[in-house]
Computed example of a mutant assay.
Amino acid sequence: MFVRAVYATGDPALLDTAVRSVNNQGRDLLEERPGYRGAGVFADREAGTLLTVSWWETEEARHNSDAVMRERRGALLEPFAGTVAVANYEAAVFHQIAHPRQGGGLRVTRLEFDPRDADLVVDTFRATVVPRTEALPGLSGVSLLVDRERGRGLGNTLFLDRASLAASRAAVAAVRHEASAKAHLDVVGLEELEVVHADVRFA
């Protein structure tokens, strides 16, 4: 599948307004688009960051949906969003163990790598990260989103609750160190976000 990620930052005091708008009107708009397969809404209420991720059957479906969403995105995110960045990815790995819950936790690891190493990154994530993390208490799932052309990606671990997310930090740090060395990639960012909504359908 293919993914569009929208990352917005702004005044934390205005974040809840954007969360409600994205989680209601935004989701209704997405549901109407052909090829839509689910979405996630994640927030850091203290820092004032909002990440929305939509999942699509094909690149074409994602592209076609963006014509509508681009027009509506500003209104959905105001007055919160001071900055908005949009990125497109291939969902190279998606391993779900349990359905995510509202109030759970998402750890996002931002990656950069030589585009020529994209297959190595995917293979390493599948062979190292997935088996090393799937037994972690409270894990809901792991995924790897990659932009092969630009050499960028998001490695994600999703937990059923924030306590499990916090308890996993040391173990996941060790896996991150091992995987980055094997795949010749750089970790350029690390964030932990609250799960507001998450649902991906494969059938």
Rank of each mutant, 00 (worst) to 15 (best):
F2Y: 11
F2G: 08
V3N: 01
A5I: 00
D11W: 03
A13K: 12
L15N: 00
D16W: 00
A18V: 05
R20K: 11
S21G: 05
S21P: 06
G26Q: 03
L29T: 00
L30Y: 02
L30V: 08
E32A: 15
P34H: 01
P34M: 00
G35M: 00
G38M: 03
G38S: 05
A39R: 07
G40I: 01
E46M: 14
G48C: 00
L51G: 05
L51P: 01
L51W: 06
T52A: 05
W55T: 10
T58L: 04
T58Y: 02
T58I: 00
E60L: 11
A61K: 01
R62E: 13
N64R: 13
S65G: 15
S65L: 03
A67E: 14
V68T: 12
R70C: 10
E71W: 11
R72Y: 09
R72N: 09
R73G: 11
G74F: 06
A75D: 15
A75P: 06
A75C: 04
L76E: 01
L77P: 01
P79D: 02
T83N: 03
A87I: 03
N88A: 11
Y89I: 03
A91K: 05
A92D: 10
A92S: 07
A92V: 04
F94P: 02
F94K: 09
F94G: 07
Q96W: 13
P100L: 05
P100D: 07
R101Y: 06
Q102P: 13
G103V: 05
G105L: 02
G105M: 01
R107M: 02
R107D: 08
V108Q: 06
R110M: 14
L111P: 10
L111Q: 09
E112C: 14
F113V: 06
P115W: 03
A118E: 10
A118W: 10
L120C: 12
D123T: 12
R126C: 04
R126F: 10
R126H: 10
V129A: 08
V129T: 03
P131H: 08
P131L: 01
P131N: 04
R132E: 15
R132H: 13
L136C: 06
L136A: 10
L136E: 13
P137A: 07
G138Y: 06
G138L: 04
L139G: 01
G141S: 06
V142D: 14
V146M: 08
E149N: 14
E149D: 15
N156C: 12
T157K: 05
L158R: 08
L158D: 05
F159S: 08
D161T: 04
D161A: 07
D161W: 00
R162C: 09
R162D: 15
A163M: 13
S164H: 06
A166R: 09
A166D: 15
A166Q: 13
A167E: 13
R169E: 15
R169Q: 15
R176T: 08
H177G: 11
E178F: 13
A179C: 09
S180P: 02
A183Y: 07
A183Q: 09
H184T: 12
L185T: 10
D186Y: 08
D186F: 11
V187M: 01
G189M: 00
G189R: 04
E192Q: 14
E194Q: 14
V196W: 02
D199F: 12
A203C: 13
